[in-house]
């Protein structure tokens, strides 16, 4: 390799390192702003902003969904397995909304409850046909009952 080419290669290497370094620093500095949502634990720790709109993400607690008989309003609990936040919402829910589902919701904290303006469902990385899902659930239930009888 000629010295000139070596020099050019070195220059590109330096350029890439410098840019990666700068971007890494910028992303670390912006870390919280890049996160799409806060978790219930962060709210409990007081990290979420007061009196402004922000996003909250977590799992819908099984058995916590309470639908109104008269309108589209709904209340449910959201957890990150450590802390729980109650969410109230009126409007149309995405198809994937169900108990145990991960969701991201936009709104604000009022009197300790999260008043949502929008609810989005978060999909996980698993893809399977309905019968496989049913079989998995059955297997889990079986395991659970054998554990119970063993105790």
């Amino acid at each position: 390799m000629t010295p000139k080419r070596k020099q050019r290669l070195l220059l590109i290497g330096l350029l890439l390192t410098a840019v990666s370094g700068a971007v890494a620093l910028a992303l670390t500095a912006l870390n919280q702003n890049i996160n799409l949502f806060y978790s219930p634990s962060q709210i409990a720790a007081g990290e979420a902003p007061d009196n402004t709109t922000f996003r909250l993400g977590g799992m819908v607690v099984e058995g916590s969904v309470k639908r109104s008989d008269t309108d589209l309003s709904i209340a449910f609990d959201l957890t990150d397995t450590a802390k729980v936040v109650t969410v109230r919402y009126t409007g149309i829910l995405p198809d994937l909304f169900r108990e145990g589902q991960g969701i991201v919701t936009t709104g604000s904290i009022q009197n300790g409850e999260f008043i949502a303006q929008q609810v989005l469902a978060k999909h996980d990385e698993n893809y399977m046909p309905p019968e496989v899902s049913a079989a998995l659930k059955q297997a889990n239930a079986d395991n659970y009952s054998t554990e119970q009888t063993a105790q």
Binding site: D95, Q118, A121
Partner: peptide, 8 residues
């Protein structure tokens, strides 16, 4: 259809 929004 899955999340409930076209863009986020």
């Amino acid at each position: 259809p899955t999340w409930g929004t076209y863009w986020v």
